[in-house]
Design a protein around this nucleic acid. Structure first.
Lengths: 244, 244
DNA sequence: CGGATTCTTGACTCCTTTCAAATATAGTGG
DNA sequence: CCACTATATTTGAAAGGAGTCAAGAATCCG
């Protein structure tokens, strides 16, 4: 125990947006120094979310958006008749909560797949500030729009691709997102279970498992439980298309 | 022929937003008279789109959003390897083009399924105005958010539902949207082909056809080509869930 | 009116699911 | 730190639902 209290709480370690290394991925991009300073005031607080715990649940009142600082999340919709659909996996620098704006309540569950930390962005203040800072407004609109485009890509995947193609597309997507964050594009650990992958891809967990085994047999990658090692990224990309 | 020129062009018949009967469905909601007047200046022009013609195509530079005044559209994504996925069907009062904000180019094709007319909303002016009118800003954010939620519902449909369930969900959705526009909830004409329904629902056209026949055999509705008559809307809703 | 498109239906195939069992892994408490 | 239990993963075999292929019928539209 320290006799002198050292601020080791979340708050104590806070890093301003202007100094955040996720800046490029997160909200503020292309702002002047002055504007960045004002955006710094936007982030209300940090919040830690332990693995398995919800960041928010469907039905809860919507107040804030969340930018992931560290960690990994899934978002999941549960229908009235009990069906569960994982609608996405989110990693550092990505924004969550956009679905809550429309109704004023969150429309899905967001759950940490590993111990994580998020920046809380009060939506009211984001609205205010984006009325004053054009760049911020436009950036926010772009982020929402990209989410729509991403969702459309998932529709395409679910509507037209076969099991192995879906799996290849899923892995290539993860690979690219890890790579853009400075991690290896060819080796990474899955944070989610086969069942969660299956829910996202519209497949049963057994089909996911078989698909991974098959891609391994084809020599495209190695699977060791949650660890993925991609040997032929190009061929994996080709496996996203029919007749391969 | 009229000897005296009467303005029968699109422009001549223009109706201000403040007098538009789609007001509740479209952009401006809950504005003061003063604000409504300013929003009127937002609508650049009307544009007619003949059946089968594109409102915009993927790749074209994004300039404007479009609010449907009359008619019916589909939006469709085409992937690099040639797969087509219908991502939605839009009717009067609904907004199209949100997917273009992110990249500055449209990311899908929007095509009229019947002769249609849209209001052109220049995005720049919408951005400006929404910086000045809180209500408009918030409404716009809500519309985008609802689009995300809608997309998530489609993911759920594609990821977890069986053919007949998807079809039932599709028809119930159409029914509700027609009803909220003052049309019959139980009888309407499909504007799209079986193939387009299939693309949207992740099914082949034969499966759509068989599904409709089946729902008819079960007595839930009558199908006569494009005409749908729903006899048991409650049971059709139940058919969206498993074990029916 | 007539070719082209769209729709329906049947028969068969194939991919994914279901059901089941064995194995491996991870988390927990002693 | 190890044992133990719950969870997660793999794999096989069989079943089922949607896809494919094909042909005929109906409808649309110029």
């Amino acid at each position: 125990m320290n006799s002198v209290s050292i601020p080791i709480t979340t708050q104590g370690l806070q890093v301003a947006c202007s100094a955040c290394n996720l800046r490029e991925l997160c909200m503020p991009v292309g702002l002047s120094d002055d504007e960045l300073e004002r955006v710094d005031t936007l982030i209300g607080a940090r919040r830690k979310v332990a693995r398995g715990m919800p960041l928010y649940l469907s039905g809860e009142p919507f107040q804030s958006l969340y930018a992931i600082r560290t960690g990994f999340f899934k978002t999941e919709v549960i229908s009235e008749d009990g069906r569960e659909q994982v609608t996405g996996f989110q990693m550092a620098g990505e924004l969550m909560g956009l679905d809550g704006i429309g109704t004023g309540n969150h429309n899905c569950d967001a759950r940490a797949l590993e111990d994580s930390e998020v920046c809380v962005i009060p939506f009211n203040r984001l609205s205010e500030l984006s009325r004053e800072i054009d760049t911020l407004q436009h950036h926010f609109h772009k982020v929402m729009s990209r989410e729509i485009v991403r969702d459309q890509a998932v529709m395409m995947l679910l509507g037209t691709m076969r099991a192995e193609e879906r799996l290849a597309a899923f892995l290539v997507n993860l690979s690219q997102r890890f790579a853009s964050r400075g991690y290896s594009a060819t080796e990474f650990n899955l944070r989610m279970t086969r069942e969660e992958i299956g829910s996202y891809l519209g497949l049963k967990l057994e089909t996911v498992s078989r698909g991974l085994s098959r891609l391994q047999d084809e020599g495209l990658l190695s699977v060791s439980n949650k660890n993925i090692r991609i040997h032929k990224l190009d061929d994996l990309k080709k496996a996203m298309s029919p007749r391969c």
